[in-house]
Design a protein around this nucleic acid. Structure first.
Lengths: 187, 187
DNA sequence: CTGGAATGTCAACATCTGTTGGCCTACAGT
DNA sequence: ACTGTAGGCCAACAGATGTTGACATTCCAG
């Protein structure tokens, strides 16, 4: 038995599988991402995937563990909240495929949709409650519509005008919207 | 041969199949919506579906024919554009599952994503060019992020705070955002 | 060196998928 | 009444999928 050092040898394999799974789920969505394809990407026998993760469903759950990594919004000047959040979102997601995996899967797979709701209930909700106690729930929902709308059109559907927009222009447009949802009131 | 009157007898069957297909695609997405399930819903043999539509792709294409039915925005007072568009979107989509079908499928199925881009290029793009010739493309993209974000969170993911919001509150929040994207400038 | 656990490989399973071709039925035109 | 044809049904195919169990290999503690 070995309990110190780099950990089990199989941990490396597990990580390889997870990386391949994340990519496949991100590109293909839950149904089209087959265990066999993931295993082939990882250069590993499909049976290993089952041995380590038990089931496709559990493999997805492990691969789609998702952390928004929201910054501490209470430390941000109130009038900059929107821009800061917009910048964070785009910086966080350009180049990370975990969100795409989760989003693509959430749209067709009920369990993934549950997880998506969890992520927003447990991460976005509290963060917003900390800076906007009134109507925090509604505000979080509104922020979600805009933020996930960006994720959908930019990273998943790849609408040309949206992908073409550079980071700063983006922040200048989306920032004020989020600011309004966070600190404004309906007209 | 019969060419007048109610049309062929099979046209009714076709319509039944299309209705069932729209519902299944909307609920399950492209991959999980099986021809067999659609046929069962329509109380028809799976082979009939193939006979009439040739292939699953073509069936989807026929079922996801989608019209935003945008109103004539040039007839709307400039300062009301945002609210009017927000109201239209929510009224158009509450209760119509065609959008959900298209959206769910577009996320995992490349051909459906193409169609989604077409819809926005051919319907939203021109409508916005008519009222905002400058930066029409970028503005259309921004509008798409917010509008599709609403569609995604309200009708597909069903985030509780978003589904809970009633029509008028919604319009009061989303309207100004769209107004800004249509007629404003980045900060 | 040796035995047993951890890792990995291989082949097969049951099931579901889109799709096809043959067959039956009903009915319109003659 | 006869026939051609459109509409409908059944059974089957080939391929892919998640999953499983039996077998081989590697590795390390004793």
């Amino acid at each position: 038995m070995q309990t110190r050092g780099q950990g089990r040898r199989s941990d490396a394999t597990k990580r390889t599988i997870l990386a391949a799974a994340r990519e496949r789920f991100a590109v293909d969505g839950y149904e089209r991402a087959t265990i066999r394809a993931i295993a082939a990407d990882a250069d590993i026998d499909p049976a290993m995937v089952m041995r380590y993760f038990g089931t496709k469903e559990k493999l997805f759950a492990a691969a789609a563990e998702f952390d928004l990594r929201l910054p501490d919004l209470t430390a941000v000047p109130r009038e900059e909240l929107g821009r800061r959040l917009a910048a964070h979102v785009i910086d966080r997601w350009d180049g990370d495929e975990t969100l795409m995996a989760l989003l693509r899967a959430a749209v067709t797979h009920p369990a993934a949709a549950d997880r998506m709701r969890e992520v927003f209930a447990e991460q976005l909700g509290p963060a917003i409650r900390a800076i906007a106690p009134d109507d925090a729930l509604a505000r979080a929902g509104l922020v979600a519509t805009q933020v996930l709308g960006v994720a959908l059109t930019r990273y998943v559907l790849r609408l040309p005008p949206v992908t073409a927009m550079d980071r700063d222009t983006f922040v200048s447009w989306i920032g004020p919207t989020l600011q309004h949802y966070l600190t404004g009131s309906p007209e």
